[in-house]
Each structure stands twice: as structure tokens, then as C-alpha cells.
């Protein structure tokens, strides 16, 4: 006869009400987002951001990354070289920023080393395909080093079920960003949350056109705002 202990050990009983408390959170720098996420972005665990490149995914994380204490910020396989001017202006010191380039296997190995080291603020990893086993391994490393891993993937990937701490889907808007929480450990998916960046990034929002200006609708022609 199987007793209840065995079933619990095999993890065949769902214990929704007795979940481990979610990891400590750090304020994200955006009040609307903090309210939706129960205080802020997690300080450890594997989190995912699904978005197109260049809509503001790093600018979303910038206040959070700046506030956390640690020595290094490691970006693994970013889509290009890091431009020091942006990062210096966003308040990061250049000595703490490192970009690491390698193939998929090397990237995962580096991510694990950085997470375990305990001297990183956060680790950002750009990787298209990642398996459940890899995520679990990274989760363990993340808990060990108390450091969060942010997995950046392009939007519209097949939404396989991954054991993530948090998953956000981003979409661009005229004034900033629209964030949907697609998965959260210890919480429910919410959204969309509208972030207004007219104050934070005044140069990178579309100014409303004057009432007497109508954009040309011809496709293939460049337009001037």
C-alpha cells in the first residue's frame, strides 16, 4: 500500500496552499509593476522576458539592476557589443559590466558559474532554446548564489511550460511599454500593465503628432514624425 509520505516524496500531491514563500523581491522602479508583482522583481530565480529586441527590455530592468547590490553584471550572448555610453548614462559603472560570448553550451556553463559565484548583481542570458533540465539546474545555482537569472527570448516562441520564477511578455506602446505577467511563482498571471516612460526616457517615446499633421499611409516610404 502506498502511504501518503511516499506520494508526497514523489511529488504527486499538489500542495498549492503550502508553497514555499516566493523569493525576496527588489523594487523594479515602476510602481504599477511593483503592485502587480507583489512588491517587485525577484532577487533570485530564473525569470524570462519575451520581447522583440530593442523595444526597451533592458531599460525595463535598468532600475532593478542598479538597485541590487553585488559587484558584477554579466550579460551572456547579448545581440551585439555593449555600448558603454548608454550604460554609463543609465548609472552603471563600467567596471562592473561584462559581456560573455560563447556557444549555447558555454553560455549555460557561464551562467551557472556566475550565478553560483555570489558576486554578481544579476545575470542576463540571451538564448533561444533552453530545456527544462537546464532551467532546473540554473534555479538551483541561482538559489545558491542568491542572484537572479534573466532569460531574454524573442516574442512568439512556442510557449512551452518551463519551471520559471517569473515570465513577462513585453509589447511596445507609443508612451512606453506594455507588460503582461504570463507566469509568476506564488501568484497569478496578470496584465496588461501600461508603463508610461515619458518621464523616464523622454527621448524614446513618440510625441503625439499635432492635430493638423496626418502621417502618410503609403507603405515603403519613410516618414518624419
Amino acid at each position: 500500500m502506498t502511504n501518503i509520505e511516499q506520494l508526497l516524496q514523489q511529488r504527486r500531491i499538489y500542495r498549492g496552499g503550502q508553497l514555499a514563500p516566493p523569493a525576496a523581491v527588489h523594487p523594479s522602479g515602476f510602481t504599477e509593476l511593483d503592485n502587480a508583482l507583489g512588491g517587485g522583481l525577484p532577487g533570485s530565480g530564473v525569470c524570462r522576458i519575451q520581447s522583440d529586441t530593442g523595444i526597451g527590455e533592458l531599460r525595463l530592468l535598468a532600475p532593478y539592476l542598479r538597485s541590487a547590490d553585488g559587484e558584477l553584471l554579466v550579460l551572456i550572448n547579448p545581440p551585439g557589443a555593449l555600448c558603454p555610453d548608454f550604460w554609463a548614462e543609465a548609472g552603471f559603472s563600467c567596471e562592473q559590466l561584462y559581456a560573455v560570448y560563447g556557444d549555447n553550451k558555454q553560455a549555460l556553463w557561464s551562467a551557472k558559474q556566475c550565478l553560483q559565484s555570489g558576486c554578481c548583481v544579476s545575470v542576463l542570458l540571451w538564448q533561444r532554446d533552453i530545456s527544462v533540465a537546464d532551467i532546473k539546474r540554473l534555479q538551483l545555482a541561482s538559489t545558491e548564489g542568491r542572484c537572479a537569472l534573466w532569460l531574454l527570448q524573442s516574442a512568439g516562441r512556442a510557449n512551452q511550460s518551463l519551471p520559471l520564477t517569473l515570465s513577462l511578455a513585453l509589447a511596445p506602446t507609443h508612451n512606453g511599454l506594455e507588460v503582461r505577467v504570463t507566469k509568476r511563482k506564488g501568484g497569478w498571471p496578470t496584465g496588461p500593465i501600461q508603463l508610461d516612460w515619458r518621464a523616464d526616457w523622454p527621448a524614446l517615446v513618440l510625441q503625439p503628432l499635432p492635430a493638423n499633421v496626418h502621417p502618410l499611409s503609403q507603405p515603403g516610404r519613410r516618414q518624419r514624425a
Binding site: L82, P84, Y98, V100, W109, C119
Partner: peptide
């Protein structure tokens, strides 16, 4: 909880991936 110092971590990454794979932003 810091197991390694930043210099030790970078040394480890460089030993495995080669020094060309690690770029500092300056």
C-alpha cells in the same frame, strides 16, 4: 554568500572560454 571574488569568477570564465570571449564595457 559570496563564494568567489569577481576576479576569481572572471579568471574561471577566461580559463574555460578564452580571454577573447569576455568583454568589458569601457
Amino acid at each position: 554568500n559570496a563564494e568567489l571574488t569577481p576576479a576569481q569568477l572572471l579568471a574561471r570564465l577566461q580559463a574555460k572560454l578564452g580571454s577573447e570571449a569576455i568583454k568589458q564595457t569601457l
